[in-house]
Design a protein around this nucleic acid. Structure first.
Lengths: 168, 168
DNA sequence: TTGAATTTTCAAAATTTATTGAAAATATAT
DNA sequence: ATATATTTTCAATAAATTTTGAAAATTCAA
């Protein structure tokens, strides 16, 4: 298989993969392109390589920057703006975990905490099942939350870092 | 807060939450409804409570059964079919992990393995970056794969089970 | 300043995905 | 067997999401 063919396949499946994870196809494809680009590239490079419009590139690179997965790079003497992706896949993973935790898990846990405090007879089976379900999910979610915090901090702590290097 | 209000909120946010995880909104809402229902319920119950069409309920309950999250229940003397969800949230989580691993992670790892074997000079920086990226993701993915296998089997193995009970 | 290069915005269009509902298929009781 | 209840299918429709592209805003050099 030639590099060009492999690139196309990688970008396309990374894009499809992304859609299963709440990330839009194009954003994931741009990310894929940046991951395999040894040097920073411009909006125009992305437009050309993926055959998408300028507006589309602009919006999705902005999202990638917001997610902390891509950096804007200024190259001295160049007028255009360049983009470059974090290449360490462990850092990519922890960054995604960190963001999703903040955007999805934390708000959900907050809501569940409120829903547990409903009025009504805890002996009535509908009330009981509701409270049991909600508190079960909340407890599970809190454990997951703690576990993810450990993973996220692993890079910043020597001890946990060397422990989790195993998974790198 | 009253039960009816809390129910509505739980169903709606579980649905929104689901969309971030590659599951469609309605499927997640039906799942939420089943999670808080102490007894099995019918297609008609679901249609009525969520205000959605029969066809929609049918397709989404089928998907939930395929995902292994919901069971069809036959109640003696009843003509209609009833549905009931697994209530143990740990089992729900491992089931989801198991399915997503099979549907998404495993095929991706297979593809990455193929993409690594491209032709071309490994010293050329475009080739090098491609191979490095792909193999980095593959290695990370393989570790994740193993870790998830451990979690999935935790329920079936006494030793790992008691180890991971910690997270329950 | 002015003007050219570049980036950003956002309403309209295109595409993708989800939902409906009625007809067909299936299952069950008499 | 026949009638009735129930489930399933799927083409048509609706809704949600993504993409475009041209105009507006911004940046920067001279």
């Amino acid at each position: 298989m030639k590099l060009s063919e492999a690139k196309a396949q990688f970008i396309s499946s990374w894009g499809a993969f992304g859609t299963h994870w709440g990330i839009n196809r194009t954003m994931a494809q741009i990310h894929a392109l940046l991951l395999i680009s040894p040097d920073p590239i411009t909006q125009d490079d992305i437009m050309e390589q993926l055959n998408i419009s300028r507006g589309n590139v602009n919006m999705n690179t902005r999202d990638l920057v917001d997610w902390g997965l891509v950096d804007r790079v200024l190259i001295p003497g160049e007028r255009k703006e360049f983009f470059s992706a974090e290449k360490d896949i462990w850092k990519v993973a922890t960054q995604i975990i960190k963001e999703r935790k903040k955007r999805e898990l934390d708000p959900m846990l907050k809501l569940l905490g409120q829903l547990e405090k409903i009025d009504g007879d805890k002996k009535e089976k509908n009330v009981k099942q509701f409270v049991d379900t909600v508190s079960g999910i909340r407890k599970f979610g809190n454990q997951a939350d703690k576990m993810l915090d450990v993973m996220i901090r692993a890079d910043e702590s020597w001890f946990l870092g060397s422990l989790l290097k195993f998974f790198k």
